[in-house]
Every structure is written in C-alpha cells, then in structure tokens.
Amino acid sequence: MSNLEELGLCLTVYVKKTFIDGNHLKTKIIKQMTRLNQFTFFIRSFINIFNEMSFPSTEDIQQTFIDFPFNKMISYFNNFADRKQSQCYIYSYPFLTRYYTGITNNFPGGLFEHVRSVSLFDEQPFEHEFFLRIQKSFPFIEELSLVNGKPQNRKQSYESNSNNQTLSLIEYFFLKKLYISNVHDDYIEQFLFHIKTYLQNNIIVYVDYESLQRVTHNFTRDSTRTNCAKISKLHLWGQGKRSNSLEEYFPYAKICYGIY
C-alpha cells in the first residue's frame, strides 16, 4: 500500500465521536503513502446523536484541508433530528464518481458531469427550486431516487398562480429510472406534473400504488397524464390491483405489482 501512486476512495462510515475530516486523511493516508500523487475521495460519515453533543461547523471541517496537497475539497454536514443522526460529507472536486448519495437541502451545488445516479434524502421539504438546482448540477443523471415524507411548503403558491409564470420547467433529458415510492404525495406531483417536470419517453418509475392513485385522482387527472404516458415500465408497491382506468392512463407501460 505504501507504494500506491493513485487512490480513489468511496466510503460511508459510522463513527462514534468525530467526523472523518482532512486531518484524518493527512495522518492516516497521505503520510503513510509517500508516493501518492493522485487522491480522489467521496466520504460520508455518520454520528448518532446522544443528549447534547456539539459538532464542528462546515468552516471548521474545511479548515482541516488547509495545505491539503491535492484537488479542491468540499465539505458540509446535516443534522437529522428525527433519526438522531448527524452526517458529514467530504469529497474531492472535480468529482469523478458515478454515484452521489444522500443529498440534502444543504447540498452546496457544483457541476458533476460524471454522476449518473443520485439519491436524495432529508427531513426538511424539498421545494421546486431544489430540484432545479439538482438538475443543473447533475445534467446527465440517469437514475434518481428520493426519500422525503415532509410536504412542500411553497406548493400552494404555485397552485394559486394560474399562469405558472414563476415556475421554471425542470428538464431531465437522460433520466431512465425514477424511484418515488417512499415520499409524500407532493413529490409524485413534482415529477408527474408536466408544467413542473419534463421527462423523456420510456422512463421506468417505482411508486406507491395508493399515493399514485391519489395524485392522479384515481387515474383521471389531466395535469399528470402527459408524463404518465411517457412511462414504459411502472412498478407499483402496496395493495394495488389492475383496473381498466389504470391501464388506459398508462397506455405504454408494462405494469408490475409488488407488496411491501
């Protein structure tokens, strides 16, 4: 290992007291590998929160990368009160990995042209502007998964604007798979409303049956019809059952049923 010249590291780790930061990388890796001349990494570290624990700020984490001998480094962290967890990201930039997992509202942005698969999670709502930022940061995204049970706060303001003058259309030109089976109904609307989101043809969608039934008004709603007609394979989770209205609403989709 001491003779390595190039190293790429992708880790998700649970730690007890301190997040993985620049000091860890300098002492545990760089000083041990004296011939290393290229080092790229993507590290998520989690700490379970007990009582009143204090955590470093993003600025504190970033300070540990002073005099770091390689590429630009990005760091940020999130607190999840419901899960009683705190999460810290550190990664090298430009970002060369094809996967970026667990993105929250604190995502600092950037351009990630190599990433093809993205997952989103937060205990705070994802608003329309957040999804616009995600699309701009990951222009070649092919798979997108989402977990968020909190309703959008600004959804009503969009619905009250009959002309939708302030709503920017989010265009996913390369998206092939969309996982929205563990979300609030607002996010199913976010992706199926054609005035909010443009989807390409032949997309595969994973979604909860009852949620989809509500959002599409029992498979009759016009505002979700355009994007639903672009689905080539529909994976429905929960106690759903086949019906003529469902099949007519998804005219080009192979429909598969699953149970949680």
Rank of each mutant, 00 (worst) to 15 (best):
E127R: 07
D122S: 12
K72V: 08
N79E: 11
F80S: 06
F70N: 04
M73S: 12
N105I: 09
T64F: 08
M73L: 12
F55L: 12
D82V: 14
S145Y: 07
R83A: 15
P139I: 00
Q135V: 11
G102T: 10
I103A: 09
F130Y: 14
F65H: 00
T58M: 10
F140P: 00
F112H: 04
Y91V: 06
D60H: 12
S57N: 07
F126V: 02
V118T: 00
I61P: 10
S75Q: 02
F130R: 11
I90Q: 04
L120E: 06
T58Q: 15
F121T: 09
T64D: 04
F107K: 00
I141G: 06
Q124H: 13
F131N: 03
L96C: 14
R133K: 08
I103L: 15
Y99P: 01
S145M: 02
Q87N: 13
P108Q: 11
G102S: 10
L144R: 05
P139G: 02
L132Q: 11
T97C: 11
N105M: 08
K136I: 11
V115P: 05
L144S: 01
P139F: 13
E59A: 11
F140G: 04
K150Y: 04
F126D: 00
Q87L: 15
I74A: 02
H128F: 07
P108N: 08
V115S: 01
S92F: 08
F130V: 05
S117R: 13
Y99E: 01
F126W: 03
T64S: 03
R83H: 14
Q124Y: 13
F138M: 00
T101E: 09
D60W: 13
Q85P: 07
F77D: 08
Y89N: 02
C88M: 11
T101Y: 09
F65P: 03
P56A: 15
A81F: 14
I74F: 07
G110P: 08
H114S: 13
T97F: 09
Y100R: 14
E123Q: 13
G109R: 01
Q63R: 10
F95T: 09
L96K: 10
D122W: 04
V118I: 10
I61T: 09
L144A: 12
P94E: 06
M73P: 12
F121H: 08
I74V: 10
S54Q: 01
E129N: 10
F68E: 13
L111E: 11
S86P: 04
I61K: 06
I90H: 01
P56M: 12
Y93G: 06
P125W: 03
V118G: 03
F70Y: 14
K84M: 07
E143M: 05
F126M: 10
S137F: 09
Q124F: 15
R133F: 07
